[in-house]
Design a protein around this nucleic acid. Structure first.
Lengths: 194, 194
DNA sequence: TAGGATACTGAACATGAGTTCAATGATCTA
DNA sequence: TAGATCATTGAACTCATGTTCAGTATCCTA
């Protein structure tokens, strides 16, 4: 639908990847048919499998493309920037793909985790982030909460009156507030579990 | 797989619902086949459609069952208890079903939202929760963050060394900490967006 | 007990979707 | 330019899966 992420036009192979990236993000891997991808890219279904071996192969290519984006960005930018930059264009894709398990997606999650861990360590060291007993767990929590809105994109869109981006941006403020100041008041430290 | 949620044994109809509840929670709606449900319940595939009309009908039944659980519990217990009680046995199911859009699932999300809103209002009134400009958005954020760990159950399980519950419980602590005290330090109020 | 409704099965049917394949067109190379 | 490699298509194949259906057993009711 309309403009696709990455590459402006390019070869048929490039168009297929772009179409897959968009359709996977919109509807998930399983729900997206090879024929739909082919149609979106303006090619035949046979060509898709010719280039990528199988639908799963195409998924691997897409995953690697997103992974490379994160890794390369991680070599130059600050971890927090990387996470924000990955969530921005690839948020829906990441949510869909991390949900529907697939071997190639594991690397994606690990990359996000590593980046988040860097961000947490840097944040603690520089004093902008609260110190934690379990840095790994904190990083995992960060990733989990970070992609959460994209999981519920459909429901949030309905809640916000049909606008997909509107729902996510509307809950962004209270979420940011929770990050900044917490949600619960009172001195009780225990009992908040579960 | 072993003991199922709700109803101990019961009729074939009850076993089908129990099996569906479990398999939908484990693998999602689309990925779960009618034959798998039938096998789990020890009946034929034909019986499933005989009782529920279609796979979609069975889903509706499951959704309504979970919805009823939440609503009924909401009439007696405190909202916060309801949310915790719903997340406990039905967390994986809710995550899967809210993700894969279906008309009957909309009611589920709305019920969660309403309950969360009650919880927020009560929390603010009783002084245990920070006041918010947009109570609805805060409720939506609460639901979103609440089910988030279940979306990533698979990845978190891998991260925690294969144990599904282990992963979720391990990030529960940093998440609870974020709720209690926030994550970010410093006086800057802006710039945390995105 | 007779009869109908309901529960239930196993096989068959229809369809959607991933994949294969032979054939054609395009492009590059010696 | 001739041959070869690659890109591309459209139809056909295969398989999984939701659904239908005719038939059988079980149970309730009058």
């Amino acid at each position: 639908m309309s403009s696709m992420i990455y590459e402006s036009d390019l070869s048929a192979r490039g168009r297929i990847v772009a179409a897959a990236l968009g359709l996977f993000a919109a509807g998930g891997f399983r729900a997206t048919t090879v024929r739909a991808i082919a149609a979106e890219a303006g090619v035949s279904a046979g060509l898709v499998v010719h280039h990528f071996g199988s639908k799963e192969g195409l998924r691997r290519e897409c995953d690697e493309r997103v992974l490379r984006f994160i890794v390369e960005k991680g070599e130059s930018d600050a971890p927090a920037e990387v996470l924000a930059g990955a969530a921005n264009p690839f948020g829906p894709y990441l949510a869909r793909m991390l949900y529907e398990t697939g071997s190639s997606t594991d690397a994606l999650f690990d990359a996000l985790l590593a980046t988040a861990r860097d961000a947490v360590e840097l944040g603690i060291k520089s004093g902008t982030m609260r110190k934690s007993d379990d840095v790994d767990a904190q990083a995992a929590a960060l990733v989990t909460l970070g992609v959460a809105p994209f999981f519920l994109a459909h429901q949030l869109a309905r809640w916000a009156g049909g606008d997909a981006l509107g729902g996510i941006s509307r809950i962004a403020e209270p979420i940011a507030d929770i990050y900044a100041r917490g949600l619960l008041l009172g001195q009780s430290r225990g009992g908040a579990g579960q």
